[in-house]
């Protein structure tokens, strides 16, 4: 199960990236942050979102060989995105907090596993 920690990280990064992208949208920004999105602040959420997704892809490339990795990276977007979509209307704040907590947790897990 040596692939579990990087996979967890890839998933967490995908989740964080998608959440960031959703924060760049008016409707979801209201939901999560409880305040209006200033149009000039859109880029503060959009660019980090894409960056996190790119990081997720990069981690995925360490788990599988190229062809499968590309497919799985897109697949992880679905696995991370669906919980986000269904969390937003019910527990928007939690959805936002998870975007920070999950990558941190994933990195901690990975480093713990690597050290032990």
């Amino acid at each position: 199960m040596t692939m579990a920690p990087p996979l967890f990280l890839a998933l967490a990064l995908a989740y964080a990236g998608l959440t960031s992208l959703s924060l760049a949208m008016k409707r979801h920004h209201d939901q999560v942050m409880g305040r209006k999105l200033q149009p000039e602040r859109v880029r503060y959420y959009r660019w980090p979102g894409w960056l996190l997704l790119a990081l997720s892809l990069w981690v995925t490339l360490t788990v599988w060989p190229l062809g499968l990795a590309l497919f799985m990276a897109v697949g992880l977007v679905a696995i991370a995105g669906l919980p986000l979509v269904f969390l937003l209307p019910y527990r928007a704040r939690l959805a936002g907090r998870l975007a920070v907590a999950l990558p941190v947790l994933a990195m901690l897990t990975w480093s713990t596993v690597a050290l032990v």
Partner: peptide, 12 residues
């Protein structure tokens, strides 16, 4: 949501 997010899988 289920269609768009997993679109590459559905197509594949």
């Amino acid at each position: 949501a289920t269609a768009v997010l997993a679109l590459p899988y559905h197509f594949m």
